[in-house]
Amino acid sequence: MSSTVLGRYVPYQSFIHRMDSRAKLFAMICLMVTVFLKQVNWAMTFLVGGLFLVFIMMLLLLSHTKITTFLKSLRTLWFMAIFLLIIYILIPRTSDWIAFSIGTFNVYWDSILDAAKILVRLMSMIALMLVFSASTKPLEMSDAFEWYMSPLKYIGFPSHELAMILSIALRFIPTILEDVHRIMNAQASRGVDFKHGGVKAKVRSVISLIVPLFVSAFMRSEELADAMECRGYDPKGKRTKYRIAHFSWRDLVGILVAAAWLGLVIASSVTHFDLFAVFGLEVR
């Protein structure tokens, strides 16, 4: 009964929710690839990146995920942004596009834009993951992974076992979070302050959380293993499925949209397409 967790599955009946998880995963990967493709210049990079962000925001709306949830997940990104900026500024460059100079040290626009580019990529990735995890049941997720890994079975790859491990791990995330919540409450009642205090106090408070958490996680895993063995679980056994996923028009639409976007971005990347040049604009 803990408060809602970021990226947790939210039960709705949206288009994205009702897509087959395998098709969804494929579409997701297509979209992810586009994030990392290089465009001919800065203006195009940010045009494509910006369009993509708008597109994902539409996906978020479509999957009933609140934009505020996404914004909340960005809060931790601030630190990352500043860190990236510093790193990129410190990297030596040979460019004539100087933003400003501190003494003899030049800060280039390229550094700042590089950091911004990475930030846009990260934001896109986070939003995409959010759409996927909020609209796909953990069980469906692991089913999809198993399906994609199944060809590897023929070379002796334990794809079922891996999928099982994955689905158990996913299944236990909320349980472990509940444990975290419970242990934090118990330790807070014993005077532990998880929010304030210096580094030393923080380390102490985290230890008071981690140790009991490990104890209960190990206990749970042992109990689960016993329970599975009692029911005759055999990883090598052939099994049937209760839920059989069907390929529907939704999946076709989803894959086509994602593939179309991927195709467009690849084409523009390969041909060094510059939309601004088409309109006769000179950009960097």
Binding site: N185, S189, I210, P212
Partner: peptide, 13 residues
């Protein structure tokens, strides 16, 4: 205000 939770043995560390 001291609070003893259900199954308090989980708080030992």
């Amino acid at each position: 205000v001291g609070l003893v939770f259900q199954f308090p043995e989980y708080q030992l560390f």
